[in-house]
């Protein structure tokens, strides 16, 4: 009789909360499973085999830059666009970094020349900051160089 009654009640009715108490565990499980099925049926998913996480040793790269060591695409020659010429040096420096290290640094002014120049400069600048009455102390020699000829006067402590 019990089985007959179950078939009479619809599934939707059995699913209602107040009907749950009277149900035996077996039918309960069955209903739950069905419900799960409905939910999962409504979920969309890609029917794909699981991705094999296999590490590949081939890397794809579609740029020629990496393959051929191409130069920077902007160029200027013989001073047409100084900005671009500076940029060329900068951008192409990466490739030539090793070569550049070997080159010796060329100096615009040699050390000796600089020392000679500063030698005369000491006098010139000294004169500029000297007071008017001290300026007589600076005299130009035959080379046009200015040198301090007299030592500065200073107070001499009298001896008793």
């Amino acid at each position: 009789m019990a089985a007959e009654r179950k078939t009479k009640l619809s599934k939707n009715l059995l699913r209602m909360k107040f009907m749950q108490r009277g149900l035996d565990s077996e039918t309960k499980k069955q209903l739950e499973e069905e419900e799960k099925k409905i939910i999962s049926d409504e979920h969309w998913y890609l029917d794909l085999p699981e991705l094999k996480e296999k590490e590949s040793f081939i890397i794809e790269e579609q740029s020629f830059l990496l393959c051929e060591d191409l130069l920077y695409g902007r160029m200027s020659f013989r001073g047409f666009n100084p900005e671009v010429e500076k940029l060329m040096l900068l951008m192409n420096a990466k490739n030539k970094a090793e070569e550049a290290e070997d080159e010796t640094v060329e100096l615009d002014v040699s050390d000796e020349e600089m020392a000679r120049r500063y030698e005369t400069l000491v006098g010139t600048i000294g004169k500029k900051y000297a007071k008017k009455r001290d300026r007589a102390n600076y005299e130009e020699d035959e080379n046009g160089d200015i040198k301090q000829i007299k030592t500065k006067k200073m107070f001499l402590k009298p001896q008793d």
């Binding site: 051929e68 060591d69 191409l70 902007r74 160029m75 020659f77 013989r78 001073g79 047409f80 490739n95």
Partner: peptide, 22 residues
């Protein structure tokens, strides 16, 4: 654009000029 391209080196000696390569 190759680093040792003779054409560009020769062209650069001709006269002041500017080139952009895409």
């Amino acid at each position: 654009l190759a680093p040792d391209c003779e054409i560009i080196q020769e062209v650069g000696k001709l006269y002041p000029l500017e080139i952009v390569f895409g």
